[in-house]
């Protein structure tokens, strides 16, 4: 169950997407996410689907692996779909007892599901093809101009990179603690909701303690290597755009153009 969470996980293989500059991927993901919310018609979603499918094909990440991330948001998906279907006013489709399903409701629900699914797949595709350190490097560089407004860009990027690298570590730790408590007969699957929430205490307490212990160790390790923030810090591999990245920007601009055209024409 714990291993289904693919958020922030990196899938090590070699592909065009893996080799792209992280800034391109960040920018691309942003454009893609915005385009998802601009589309109001099914034609628009065909464009979004074509784009996403070709990116998945380019990434060389197994499709099974990408879709695993959706399991975690299944509940949210069902919840939004139900709310949208029943609570949108409009032309009546079916009606029974006090509940009316409208054509607009079904339409909206379908759009919402598509948006959420594409949103998750699109953003996990970015993290699956970018190492956490590359990702935060890209973020730090793209947002560097915010420093003018005294936004601590380096610190935020560092926190993000630590958080991302620790996701798998903490997941593993959680898995270990769950096993250790199961070895003592703990049962997380049966009983009513209150019992189930209570059964999480033997996992959460050790997990928090271990997270604090790790944070403390890491802080000491960083300080003993003279970490003092981003000022004057150099990079081993500074980010630089290549031909491939420029081509990727061209593709993004084309996509954006198609999005705008589809938005106006259909």
């Amino acid at each position: 169950m714990i291993r289904d969470i693919t958020l922030g996980q990196y899938y090590p293989t070699d592909s065009v997407l893996h080799r792209l500059d992280p800034r391109v991927k960040l920018c691309g993901t942003l454009i893609y996410v915005i385009s998802l919310f601009l589309f109001q018609t099914f034609t628009g979603y065909i464009v979004a689907t074509v784009f996403l499918v070709s990116m998945i094909a380019l990434s060389h990440v197994p499709v099974k692996f990408i879709f695993r991330g959706l399991k975690a948001i299944l509940f949210i998906l069902v919840f939004t779909a139900v709310l949208n279907t029943f609570l949108t006013p409009g032309r009546e489709l079916v009606s029974f007892w006090k509940i009316t399903i409208t054509i607009e409701g079904v339409r909206l629900a379908a759009f919402m599901i598509l948006r959420l699914v594409y949103l998750i797949i699109g953003s996990s595709l970015m993290t699956l093809t970018t190492t956490p350190s590359n990702l935060t490097d890209g973020l730090e560089k793209s947002l560097g101009w915010l420093k003018v407004f005294r936004v601590p860009v380096h610190e935020i990027a560092m926190m993000m990179s630590i958080a991302l690298t620790f996701i798998p570590v903490l997941l593993e730790e959680t898995d270990r603690i769950i096993k250790a408590q199961q070895a003592r007969g703990a049962d997380f699957e049966s009983g009513n909701i209150i019992r189930r929430v209570k059964s999480l205490v033997p996992i959460l307490v050790p997990l928090f303690i271990s997270a604090f212990r790790r944070a403390n160790d890491l802080a000491i390790a960083m300080e003993s290597r003279c970490y003092h923030g981003g000022d004057g810090r150099t990079k081993m591999r500074p980010l630089a755009y290549g031909f491939r990245d420029i081509m990727a920007y061209v593709v993004l601009v084309l996509y954006l153009a198609v999005v705008i055209v589809v938005g106006i024409m259909f």
């Binding site: 270990r176 603690i177 096993k179 250790a180 408590q181 199961q182 070895a183 003592r184 007969g185 049962d187 205490v201 033997p202 307490v205 050790p206 303690i209 271990s210």
Partner: peptide
Amino acid sequence: IKALRGKVGLVFQYPEHQLF
């Protein structure tokens, strides 16, 4: 399986990390 876990007691590495 629950009864089995009572019969085969498994003490993990660093078991003190599971105290709560």
